[in-house]
């Protein structure tokens, strides 16, 4: 019997496995009928999952941890029996700030230590002349974007939240916020960085993979209690996503995948731009050539296997950002988010 599942997602390239499973017949072959529901905020996805208006949701890995641990005012325990991708983010600054950084850079801006030092120079110069601090945007407080920004700045001693402001801006508004000068830079997933470059308002400084390689970005989140209760549904969806991972990892399928993702009810973004992201052909802006970034975003089988070690890495980043004090108990509970129990129970092959 076919199982119907409602899955919420935000319009981002890293929803690729969900879209591939739903739109190529992979889900049907695994006895599933997937209804993908596009949403506008991570908070909505978390809440709709919590009250079971959704069966599963596209979720930021750190948000799944925060929600499980109850940091941030909400306790909604989640389990991620599978990841949706590793990497996929980039750090973009406005064209104007890029020029300023290029002027003061001592070395190649492609080196994160050099670019962070250039930022530090800008920050102190602004402080000295009484200008307001620079503002950087992430799309959610508990996100890899926040940690990438924070750890990059920390390379040169710039403190996010103190020396530079942190603003939370929804992905759909990042390009506009950069263009209007509301923020000086942002860290977000695809396709927003390349959209900012194409619009001529931004330049990509670094890709996530340059700063913290193989960072767990999005997971497929279920309510923790549903993972136990609905083992069959979880196992089928996991199997479908593993097959989708195989399909998505085959270069020959990238044009069709880009077409599926570009659809109005999916990302509603140009297919050519999405395909370039899948290929790792990243436009940089700032007068620099196209850059080929291997593993810009990873959807392969090894990438989507849940691993409790992901929790350790993210908790450490959360602690550095001052969001949590790590304890042994907290670590155990965070690790449980990535417990591949279903995969083990069904001897799933990743």
């Amino acid at each position: 019997m076919t199982l119907r599942l409602r899955i919420g997602f935000l319009p981002l390239v890293d929803a690729a496995l969900l879209v591939a499973a739903a739109d190529t017949g992979i889900a049907e072959a695994h006895g599933l009928s997937l209804e993908l529901l596009r949403d506008v905020s991570w908070s909505n996805l978390r809440d709709r999952l919590h009250v079971r208006l959704l069966d599963a949701a596209h979720m930021l890995a750190p948000a799944a941890i925060a929600s499980t641990l109850g940091i941030g005012g909400v306790t909604a325990p989640m389990v991620a029996p599978i990841l949706l991708n590793l990497n996929g983010n980039a750090l973009t600054v406005s064209a104007r700030r890029f020029e300023e950084m290029a002027r003061v850079a001592q070395g190649d801006l492609a080196d994160p230590a050099v670019s962070a030092q250039a930022l530090a120079t800008l920050v102190s110069a602004r402080k000295a002349s009484g200008l307001p601090p620079l503002a950087f945007a992430a799309v959610f407080g508990f996100s890899c974007h926040t940690y990438l920004l924070r750890d990059w700045m920390a390379l040169a001693g710039v403190r996010l939240g103190e020396d530079a402001r942190l603003e939370i801006v929804p992905p759909v508004r990042t390009v506009e916020a950069l263009a209007s000068g509301e923020v000086d830079g942002f860290c977000a997933g695809a396709p927003w960085n390349t959209l900012a470059v194409e619009a001529g308002v931004g330049a990509i400084l670094h890709c996530g993979v340059d700063l913290m390689p193989d960072l767990p970005e999005k997971v497929l989140a279920w309510r923790a209690d549903d993972v136990e209760r609905r083992g069959e549904a979880v196992a089928r969806l996991n199997a479908a996503l593993i097959e989708a991972s195989r399909w998505v990892s085959d270069e020959a399928n990238w044009p069709s995948l880009a077409g599926l993702l570009a659809a109005p009810d999916r990302l509603a973004a140009p297919a050519a731009l999405i395909e370039a992201v899948l290929r790792g052909d990243i436009v940089q802006g700032g007068g620099r050539p196209l850059r080929q970034v291997p593993s810009y975003i990873r959807f392969d089988a090894a990438a989507i296997r849940p691993d409790p070690a992901h929790a350790d890495r993210l908790l450490a980043a959360m602690a550095r950002a001052g969001q949590v004090l790590v304890t042994l108990d907290l670590t155990e509970r965070a690790r449980a988010v990535f417990r591949p129990l279903v995969a083990e129970a069904t001897q799933m092959k990743f």
Binding site: N44, G72, V74, L166, E167
Partner: peptide, 28 residues
């Protein structure tokens, strides 16, 4: 309202804002 994409920003504002005592969402 949930249609507002800035809901995530609002939630975060509560985390860091010095203006408000620590707020919590409805389903704590």
């Amino acid at each position: 309202d949930l249609e507002n994409p800035s809901r995530d920003a609002l939630a975060d504002m509560f985390q860091v804002s010095r203006h408000v005592r620590r707020p919590i969402t409805m389903f704590v």
